[in-house]
Computed example of a mutant assay.
Amino acid sequence: MSHTETIAYWQREISVHMPHLSRPQAAVLALWSYGMVLSKSSGITTIW
């Protein structure tokens, strides 16, 4: 599974479990949480 597919899948999961989020909010949360997993950190300077 490519990174793009993984992020799309994770965004769908977020939308299912947090339906109150808008699509852009779910997209940012998916990217942020995926970045946290890859970098093993939650610091903004590490992820961006």
Rank of each mutant, 00 (worst) to 15 (best):
Glu13His: 12
His17Tyr: 11
Thr45Tyr: 05
Glu13Val: 15
Pro24Lys: 03
Val16Gly: 04
Ser39Val: 06
Arg12Trp: 05
Val16Thr: 14
Leu38Cys: 14
Pro19Thr: 08
Ser42Val: 06
Tyr9Thr: 08
Gln25His: 01
Ser39Gln: 11
Ala8Asn: 11
Trp48His: 13
Ser39Cys: 14
Leu29Ile: 05
Leu29His: 02
Ile47Arg: 01
Leu31Glu: 07
Tyr34Trp: 13
Ser42Asp: 10
Met36His: 00
Thr4Ala: 15
Lys40Gln: 12
His3Ile: 12
Tyr9His: 11
Ser39Asp: 04
Ala27Asn: 10
Thr4Asp: 15
Val16Ala: 12
Thr45Pro: 00
Tyr34Phe: 11
Leu31His: 06
Thr46Ser: 09
Thr4Ile: 15
Ile14Asn: 06
Gln25Glu: 08
Ala27His: 07
Pro24Met: 01
Ile7Cys: 06
Met36Arg: 02
Ser22Val: 01
Leu29Phe: 07
Glu13Asn: 10
Ile44Ala: 10
Lys40Asn: 12
Ser22Thr: 14
Ser39Met: 10
Trp32Glu: 04
Met1Asp: 14
Leu31Arg: 10
Ser2Leu: 09
Val37His: 03
Tyr34Glu: 05
Thr45Gln: 11
Val37Pro: 05
Arg12Ile: 01
Trp10Gln: 10
Leu31Tyr: 08
Val37Gln: 03
Ile44Lys: 10
Ile7Asn: 05
Val28Ala: 02
Thr4Gln: 15
His20Trp: 12
Ser22Pro: 05
Tyr34Lys: 01
Val28Asp: 07
Arg12Met: 09
Leu31Pro: 00
Val37Cys: 07
Thr6Lys: 14
Ser2Gly: 15
Val37Asn: 09
Ala26Val: 02
Trp48Lys: 12
Met18Pro: 05
Leu29Asp: 00
Gly35Glu: 08
Gly43Ala: 15
Trp10Val: 11
Ser15Ala: 12
Ile44Asn: 02
Ser42Pro: 03
Tyr34Gln: 08
Thr6Ala: 14
His20Arg: 11
Ser33Glu: 06
Ser22Gln: 11
Gln11Cys: 13
Glu13Thr: 14
Met1Ala: 15
His17Thr: 03
